[in-house]
């Protein structure tokens, strides 16, 4: 069942920058979808359009059957949580506790219930012992985890990660990526991740490749990542495992498509055993 259904959406920032050009796509409930594309390909604009932060010039967006319009905006924002790129610029509260409470206050949750909700989600993102910490005392990864807790606390059906790991160090990046994976496995949450990170794409159910405001390709990661030339043509990298597979094939070794390093290593081991 489709939870996000976008039809022919168009958006221009001004007369020159036509960021999104007649884009149509849908996302299945409970799936993990990634949108990849080079800088300025319109992927972040799509995130902002989906949550109504920017208005579409034309086309329609349906979230869980509701059409995105001014009158439905509050209902849709109840269903969609978003985590942005810059950890500092989305930390609104004075402490972790206040930041998680911010969304709850906006959704008019009774103040007596807030403590329990805040504690529950702080534990979930492993930030319980930092509840009274100020943002200056936290690392980028920790601030992103707080942002995730803030989004989760509102009990959304969809959560959008808008390049949430791009400003983090490798450790913070891994931490957040693993957390997204866990979240996807344990909850019936629809995840839409907008990313530069091609390795993250391998872990998703569905991939959308954007190029100059349009959808270039859409499909399962293994089908998309096979099309090396197309990916390189739109300034995208290909996963390391796929690069090795391509090189091995050039040398005449028959090997199946491997999206993860682990499966590639085990296949190479098996091949050498057969020899």
């Amino acid at each position: 069942m489709k939870i996000i259904d976008a039809k022919n959406i168009d958006f221009s920032y001004d007369e020159i920058t036509h960021a999104v050009k007649s884009v149509s796509f849908s996302v299945e409930r409970g799936s993990y979808t990634t949108i990849i594309g080079h800088n300025g390909s319109g992927k972040s604009t799509i995130a902002k359009l989906l949550i109504g932060l920017l208005p579409c010039d034309s086309g329609s967006i349906h979230i869980d059957g509701l059409e995105l319009s001014l009158s439905n905006l509050a209902k849709i924002r109840n269903k969609v949580g978003i985590v942005f790129q810059n950890p500092d610029n989305q930390f609104i509260g004075a402490t972790v506790r206040d930041d998680i409470a911010f969304g709850l206050e906006n959704h008019r949750i009774d103040s007596n219930l807030m403590d329990d909700i805040i504690n529950e989600f702080a534990i979930k993102v492993n930030m319980f012992e930092y509840l009274d910490s100020e943002p200056t005392k936290l690392s980028g990864g920790q601030k992103q985890r707080v942002a995730i807790a803030g989004a989760l606390a509102m009990n959304p059906e969809i959560i959008i990660f808008d390049e949430s790991t791009s400003m983090l160090d490798p450790q913070g990046k891994n931490e957040i990526n693993n957390f997204i994976q866990e979240l996807h496995k344990e909850k019936d949450l629809t995840i839409l991740s907008i990313t530069h990170d091609i390795e993250e794409v391998c872990k998703s159910d569905n991939v959308i490749v954007m190029f100059e405001g349009k959808i270039l390709m859409e499909g399962k990661p293994c089908d998309i990542l096979n099309q090396t030339e197309k990916l390189v043509a739109c300034n995208l990298d290909i996963p390391f495992a796929q690069k090795v597979v391509n090189e091995l094939r050039l040398k005449g070794i028959s090997i199946s498509d491997n999206l993860t390093l682990e499966s590639l290593v085990s296949e190479i081991c098996l091949l050498s055993l057969k020899k």
Partner: peptide, 10 residues
């Protein structure tokens, strides 16, 4: 960005 984040959180 802060305004976007605040609006997105209702």
């Amino acid at each position: 960005e802060l305004a976007f984040a605040m609006e997105a959180r209702g």
